[in-house]
Amino acid sequence: MMSFSQPDAFSPSQFTSSQNAAADSTTPSKSRGASSTMPLTVKQISEAQQSGITGEKGAPFVVDGVETANVRLVGLVSGKTERNTDVSFTIDDGTGRLDFIRWVNDGADSAETAAVQNGMYVSVIGSLKGLQERKRATAFAIRPVTDYNEVTLHFIQCVRMHLENTKSQIGSPAKTYSAMGSSSSNGFSEMTTPTSVKSNPAPVLSVTNGSKTDLNTEVLNVFREPANVESEHGVHIDEIVKRFRLPEAKIKVAIDYLADIGHIYSTIDESHYKSAFNE
């Protein structure tokens, strides 16, 4: 049975008053006091816009029409650099990369950052900063992920949050943002007005309409996934069949077509294929 740990269950001592003050100073009064965190992916952050006058200092970022105070990311640490006053690192969650800085004020902060190493999965809570078109974030709390289910849970939370926010945008100018998951909810809910209302939010899951071209493209995308590109022997046809839950004959036709036009090639036998895409 899958056990869900709580990625947000940070001990209160990890949030110092100075950090909360820092968080407050960067967000407009409208969202001050709301300490609930929003689970996001780097891609969502990279597409986020600042509300208010463009480039206005301290203007909060808007994701899916919701102003974000604090954000939570789960991803792989790289490029960790330690200095006397701060530690900077990059988080890669598979959708993109985001630079973080964690200010070091006391021994507790040092201990927290020391536990984080390159190549480790971590859960980070922080606030966003926009700096000349480039987004970066200040981290308040970093914690190594001990159970990989946390990563899966985080992405599920991101999907659910995105669906909730985009659904409620249709037909309602004002929207309620409630933090999701009992672990992160603290009873606060926040009323904000979205800066842009999308009439047709993009569906999160694309459903193939059964046309051959679509299936070919979707099968090719599986082969082009980074893990499959790096795999020595590529992907077995059975894995593709399992993934799409379609008859093997249909998948075989798509694979034969992709092999004929040179997008994929067979490796150790006629059942293992790999993308010709150069990584």
């Binding site: 036009i261 040179g262 997008h263 090639y265 993308s275 010709a276 895409f277 150069n278």
Partner: peptide
């Protein structure tokens, strides 16, 4: 070179034309 070019080549064809 075929595999390397296949991974890098991009193309466009007139709409409606067969592959």
């Amino acid at each position: 070179i075929l595999k390397h070019l296949s991974g890098e080549e991009i193309s466009r064809k007139p709409p409606g034309e067969k592959h």
